[in-house]
């Protein structure tokens, strides 16, 4: 049926884009971008995921409600990752004297855990 043909074209064009992105992310991993490597890789992964979601999983012609359901999972994951990293990215090391820290000295008044027990 000719109705299937535009869809076929769309599917394989999407596939081609995905494969290109795969090549880009694999090759890009070898570029010396320092900390940017992670962001580039994740950005490309997000692009691939969006292509799969929008084209293959037909979000492009789904109702707003279905799109909201699809977005909700990712949004909540983002909440979990963001607030957890609020802890991990803001921790300061306060080594104790018996940990063998070479420059161990009492934390300047008011650091977390200040004062001994």
């Amino acid at each position: 049926m000719s109705a299937a043909r535009p869809a076929v074209g769309r599917i394989w064009r999407c596939w081609a884009a995905l494969v290109l992105l795969l090549a880009a992310t694999t090759g890009g991993a070898f570029l010396p971008l320092g900390r940017l490597n992670l962001f580039v890789a994740l950005a490309i992964a997000a692009a691939k995921a969006l292509l799969v979601l929008i084209v293959f999983m037909e979000l492009r012609r789904s109702s707003g409600l279905v799109r909201a359901f699809a977005a909700a999972g990712f949004f909540w994951l983002a909440i979990m990752l963001t607030l957890t990293s609020a802890d991990y990215l803001t921790r300061r090391d306060a080594p104790a004297a018996w940990d063998g820290a070479t420059d161990a000295r009492p934390p300047a008044g008011g650091g977390e855990g200040a004062g001994g027990q």
Binding site: W76, I79, L83, A86, D87, Y88, T90, R92
Partner: peptide, 22 residues
């Protein structure tokens, strides 16, 4: 309710900035 879980961990050793946020 999804944004407050760290209030169970105020004295557990999480960073004080996280504690403030929670």
């Amino acid at each position: 309710g999804f944004l407050v879980w760290g209030h169970h961990m105020f004295v557990a050793g999480q960073s004080v900035y996280a504690s403030l946020t929670f």
